[in-house]
Simulated scan of single mutants.
Amino acid sequence: MSKNVTRRVVLRGTAIAVAGAALAAPAAMAATRAALPMDHTGMDHSGHGSHGPQPFDEVYQGRRIVGTPVTTGHEAHHGGFAVTIDGKELHVMRNADGTWISVINHYQTYPDPLALTRAAVDKLQGASLVPITTR
Rank of each mutant, 00 (worst) to 15 (best):
T84M: 01
V5K: 14
V103P: 00
V92R: 09
G13D: 10
V121N: 07
Q61I: 02
A34C: 02
M29T: 13
L23N: 05
L11W: 05
Q61L: 13
G80W: 00
Y107I: 09
V103L: 09
A82R: 15
Y110A: 08
G47D: 01
V9D: 13
A28H: 04
A28F: 03
I104M: 13
A76E: 00
G73K: 00
T133C: 07
F56K: 11
Q125G: 14
R8N: 13
I104F: 01
T71E: 00
V9E: 08
T32W: 07
G126Y: 05
L116N: 03
V103R: 15
N95W: 00
P26I: 04
G79V: 00
P113A: 03
L23R: 08
I16L: 15
A24G: 08
Q54P: 01
F56R: 11
G80P: 01
P111L: 01
H77I: 08
V103S: 12
K88A: 10
P53R: 05
I104T: 14
L90N: 12
V66L: 12
I132G: 03
T71S: 05
G98P: 03
M38I: 14
P26S: 06
F81K: 00
H40E: 04
D86P: 06
K3H: 12
T14G: 08
A21L: 14
Q125I: 01
T41W: 00
L114H: 12
V9K: 15
H51L: 10
N95E: 09
V18F: 09
T41A: 13
T99N: 10
A119S: 15
A24K: 06
L114W: 02
T72Y: 01
E89Q: 15
T68A: 06
T109L: 02
L11A: 13
G49E: 03
R33T: 07
G42F: 02
A24V: 10
W100A: 11
V103Y: 03
A35L: 06
T109E: 09
N95G: 03
P37K: 11
V70P: 00
A115Q: 15
D57E: 11
L124S: 11
A30P: 00
G126I: 06
E75H: 01
V92S: 07
H78C: 05
R118D: 02
I104K: 10
V66G: 02
R135V: 04
V103A: 09
G49W: 02
A96T: 09
V121F: 04
R12G: 07
E58A: 13
L23P: 02
P37L: 06
Q54H: 11
F81A: 00
D97S: 07
S2H: 12
L90V: 10
G47Y: 01
A35Q: 11
T84R: 10
R12H: 10
A19H: 01
I65R: 12
K88C: 03
